[in-house]
Structure formats: structure tokens, C-alpha cells
Amino acid sequence: MKKLINNPTNVVDEMIEGYIKAHPNHVKQLAENKRSIVTAKETKDGKVGVLIGGGSGHEPAFMGYVGEGMADAVAVGNIFASPPPDPILEATRVIDKGAGVLYIYGNYAGDVMNFGMAAELADLEHGIQVGTVLVTDDVASAPKEEKEKRRGIAGEFFVTKVAGAASEKGYSLEELVSVANKANDYTRSMGVGLTPCSLPQTGQPSFELGENEMEIGLGHHGEPGVEKGELKTADEVAERLVADILVDMPIAEGEDVAVLVNGLGSTTRMELYIMFRKVEKMLSEKGITIHRSYVGDYSTSLEMGGCSVSIMKLDDELKELVDQTADCPMYVQK
């Protein structure tokens, strides 16, 4: 499993160095902590800061979504590992404009612990009020009645999009927490894994699947899914993913949604558009309108093969926010 790297120990820091040099008009690295990246553009006083973060290896998540209309800062962890409290706290201090900061991150034990510690320190040491939204969109990771235990996967893109737009519009911290939680509550995701990735430090596959096997519900770090079986056609896979989402979050005829078909790293655009074709057909047949669609690599797992489908149900407020422009190094919406 070949990779274009130097010393495996330095891959994250060298990636960040290259990223900052490639996008100096969008982002800057804080001298106080090299794992803290903030927007290069001055934000206005009274704006609630939006801070995201998590492990590396999911690019363009998370650092690709710092920019106008999205997040104001990101704390970068090691590969598939939460950032420690220090870069989170340093970024919080810099982006606070007197109205507080919202943390958005996936529901993983390390993230919950480290972002929680940073929030406490922000209040104790700097008097900064922090709100938190845990992303829990992965249908496969826990039953509906235990939704609070679910992992956050590609649906975090939608939550960040909504929160970033609301922050730009002048929402208060309390209002921002409310609308970002609504975006999370209205979002469901299901994925399928086809081939593993390998960590630079080990060069070994992150999990094992047979030559003609797939795994429904596989996690972004290789966590076990809900079912292994023979590889199916794109239409059959799409049917399964969408059906599981709609059972978990019923959507009525006439409702609007945003849809993301997300590649996990090595899946071609050809395959993703074939998947989207079936997703659109299924929703259209149920009288559900796709208001906005996103197809591509939005939250990857290094070079893992497979994809996920995320659907966010839209009310008038979410529709307005998801339509807002955004300008980030790895994502632009006009």
C-alpha cells in the first residue's frame, strides 16, 4: 500500500505546512500551536466563532472547511485521532469575537474528552463561553432509540455548513447551538466499505474484506459495520443505504432534502455519480425533492474504497442556510 510520504511520523505536520503554503489567502497557522488553523480573513466583532476538528486522514474534512460561510478554525489531530485540548483552546482564543465559540465535532470518545476539556479551560482561563454540538448521523453505529451513541461521519459537513452560514448571518451562540443541533437531528448517513486503507506508520490494511466482499455500515476508521456480504451492484447498494436512512428518519412526500454522496478516498467520481443516479431515482419516486446535491470526496478515510450517503431533511430555515455561499480552500459554493 504505497504512499508519497517522507518520515511517517511527520505526515500530519508536513501536510499542514503544505496546506498553509498552498492557501495563504484563506487560512493561517497559529504560531502558538502548529495544529491550530484559523481563517486568514478578519471576522467582525460580535460574530460567534465556529470551530471544528478531529483526526487527520479525512481530508477535506476537517481543515478544508475553514473559510467564509463555514468554520472559522480547525484543530488538527493525528491520523484518526482527536486533537489534544491545547490546539483547540488556542484556536478558540483567537477566533472569539466577544460572542462565544461553537464547537462541532463527531461523537468519538477522544473528541468528547478533549473538546470538553478545552471548553472548560476556555471559560476558566479566558472567560469565553463555548457551545457544543455533537454530530451523530451514522445510522449503522447504534439503534434509533440510542441515537446519542451514534458516530459522526460525513453528515458533519451539513452541520458545519448550516452553522457557518448562521454564524455569518449574526445568530447568537444559543441560536447557533439550536440550529446546528437541528441540522444534526435532521441528518442521517449510511456507508459501505469495499477496500481498506493503510496508516502511514504501519502500511498495513486497517481491516480485512474478501476479494468479492463489502461491508454495510463500516465506520470511517474501519469500525465494524452491521453486515458483511457479497459485493452487490451500485443500485442494490444505494437501495440498501437509502432504505435504512428512510426507515430511521421518515421523509414525507413533498418534503425537500439535501443529499451528499461521499467518497471514502479511492472511489471514483464515476462510481459516485452512478450511486447518486439511483439515490435520486428512489427519492423522486417517493415525491421527495432534492433541493441541493453534493457528490465527491467530502469526508474520506485515507484511501479507503466505498462511499456513504447522507440525507438532511430541510425546513425553511435549513434550506436558507444550506443555500448560503461559502469559500474555503477545499469547498466553494456560489
Rank of each mutant, 00 (worst) to 15 (best):
V237R: 12
K3H: 10
G110Q: 03
Y65K: 08
R269M: 09
N33D: 15
V257H: 02
I20P: 01
G219A: 03
K161L: 06
G106V: 14
V309K: 02
Y331T: 00
N33W: 01
G210V: 09
R35S: 05
E320F: 04
S301N: 14
G49V: 03
A99N: 12
T325F: 05
K47C: 02
R269I: 06
D327T: 03
G106M: 14
A61M: 15
L283N: 02
L231Q: 11
T202A: 03
R277Q: 12
M1H: 13
Q324N: 07
L241Q: 13
G18A: 11
A163I: 07
H291N: 10
E120C: 01
I274D: 14
S284F: 12
T233D: 11
N25K: 15
H126K: 15
L194M: 15
G131Q: 14
R269V: 04
M304F: 08
I16P: 01
M249G: 00
G55L: 02
R269P: 00
L176T: 06
T202W: 04
G193P: 06
L30T: 07
V76L: 03
E120A: 08
F207R: 13
V130C: 13
G55P: 01
T9Y: 13
D72N: 15
P60A: 09
N212Y: 05
N7Q: 05
N181A: 10
F276H: 08
H221T: 08
